[in-house]
Design a protein around this nucleic acid. Structure first.
Length: 222
DNA sequence: ACCCAGGTGGCCC
DNA sequence: GGGCCACATGGG
């Protein structure tokens, strides 16, 4: 699979069909960081509501969040779900970063491996959120795997269950290591998943990935 | 009345 | 190292 340029073909199809996705929505690295945590297991429209509330209260940077009132923070992010848990973690993480680095951009300047370990050590940041921050805020060439990625890859290539890093390795071994490509490919996976590859349902008839499916089954020796 | 959403961490074996 | 579970709002 990695050698037959299948993933490159898939990206071309998606890019031609959907156009450049222009991710991550957000003006500043602080906004990207905050929304990356708020979007955990939550639909983006609900994150937008929470982000609007934070904007109204001038809480769209980690410095303000670190010194904010916890109840105020909870109320603001309520629409994004798990709001007590997320508010507590967001405030703790923001305080930690402010006291240790002074600002988010200072922390994001570290090399990718160091930064990833640092992010994963924080309560409330797992592999996907860490990689979203690495790719979209720090602009490091780290591919983001999510539920859509796993679902789509499994449907197309008939893959067994596998862990996060294993799927990440599988995808990145099939495409060139490039921040802009990683950025848009992940966004295309999300677009495709939302519109054409829903959970517990067959691929939509007009799904752009169908021809990759057919191509793969035809060329696979078995 | 379900099922799903741009996950994470804790607890159990 | 996996298999459950809680966390919670809002849309289909």
């Amino acid at each position: 699979m990695a050698s037959d340029r299948s993933l490159g073909r898939l990206y071309c199809l998606l890019r031609n069909r959907f156009g450049f996705q222009d991710w991550w929505p957000g003006e500043t690295t602080d906004e990207i960081f905050i929304s990356a945590i708020l979007t955990q297991n939550t639909s983006w429209v609900n994150v937008e509501k929470a982000m609007l509330n934070l904007r109204r209260r001038h809480l769209l940077d980690i410095s303000s969040i670190s010194s904010s009132n916890l109840r105020t923070l909870e109320t603001a992010i309520k629409p994004s779900g798990f709001y007590k848990q997320k508010a507590r973690r967001l405030k703790n993480i923001s305080s930690y970063i402010c006291s240790k680095y002074g600002s988010l951009s200072k922390m994001l300047g570290a090399d990718a491996d160091t930064l990833r370990r640092e992010l994963l050590s924080m309560d409330g940041i797992g592999p996907e959120t860490a990689d979203c921050i690495l790719l979209y805020a720090a602009e490091k060439p780290i591919f983001v795997v999510d539920a859509y990625t796993c679902r789509i890859m499994s449907r197309i290539y008939n893959l067994p269950e596998m862990g996060y890093e294993e799927m990440q390795e599988l995808v990145t071994s099939g495409i060139t290591k490039n921040v802009e490509l990683y950025n848009d490919f992940h966004a295309q996976f999300v677009k495709l998943g939302k519109d054409y590859c829903k959970k517990n349902k067959p691929l939509c008839k007009n799904c752009p990935a169908k021809q990759i499916c057919i191509y793969y089954k035809k060329t696979k020796g078995n």
